[in-house]
Design a protein around this nucleic acid. Structure first.
Length: 220
DNA sequence: AGCGGTGTAAATCATGGGGA
DNA sequence: TCCCCATGATTTACACCGCT
């Protein structure tokens, strides 16, 4: 395919439409009017020979083709943005940028005090805006551009996100000394042999620990 | 090289149609 | 009825070409 005759700005429109699922708001994000965005969508449809977005439940829903395209286009746009930003390197000591970080409440507790201490040392003018939420909400914040980065437990890799392990965590079991089912040490068998109370944020028994225990739990 | 005419693409404005 | 998307008319920006 010859890219010379292709308007690559359409890719940013596509990216905004994927994030907003709304022509007007996608246009606002890009500084375009709603008709201009609608027109760009029409050209995207012509270019890809696919509807890309169909109206459903009052919102635009991406077609399978659009979802597949997004997985390739979004990392490409991130690479282009990173390449262009090299001209203006980030200087922590002088920057007064406001970073928006999405965190789960646990990560907030575990990470934020150390992060603030470190920022005070190397980037005292940088400000943080913390957005709390559970996993899917944080991913949506990242996709929509409302968060610069998110911190939490994300077991599966998503094609257009870059990830980095910050730390490993261990869980500790505490029980009374005379617990009838457990001796001096706690084996996996001991742990699984007792009844469990499941705390599931979404109420659907999801999450890595919930999944591991789903065959052994006692729901209340 | 600079200027002006022309065509095309994309923008805005105004408005209509569909769905909740 | 209101909101949202699509579309037609018009305007604007830009590339291309020919002329001086």
């Amino acid at each position: 395919m010859n890219l010379y005759g292709t308007d690559l700005n359409l890719l940013t429109v596509f990216d905004a439409l994927m994030a907003e699922r709304h022509v007007t708001r996608a246009g606002e994000r890009l500084g375009l009017s709603q008709p201009a965005t609608s027109n760009a969508l029409a050209r995207l449809r012509q270019l890809t020979r696919d509807e890309l977005f169909v109206r459903s439940g009052g919102r635009l829903q991406p077609t399978p083709t659009a979802i597949a395209l997004a997985q390739q286009i979004q990392p490409a746009l991130q690479q282009i943005a990173a390449a262009l930003q090299r001209e203006q390197p980030f200087e922590p000591a002088t920057s007064d940028r406001v970073f928006t970080i999405g965190m789960t409440d646990y990560v907030e507790f575990a990470l934020l005090p150390k992060l603030l201490e470190r920022l005070q040392q190397v980037a005292s003018e940088v400000k943080l805006q913390i957005r709390a939420g559970e996993r899917s909400q944080l991913l949506a914040l990242l996709d929509s551009g409302e968060a610069d980065l998110i911190c939490g437990l994300f077991p599966e890799q998503i094609a257009w996100h870059e990830g980095q392990r910050l730390f490993r965590e261990e869980f500790v079991c505490v029980c009374r000394q005379d617990h009838p089912s457990i001796g001096d040490t706690l084996s996996l068998e001991d742990y699984l042999s007792v009844s469990h109370l499941l705390v599931s944020i979404k109420g659907d028994r999801t999450g890595p620990i919930d999944t591991l225990l789903v065959g052994h739990l006692l729901c209340i």
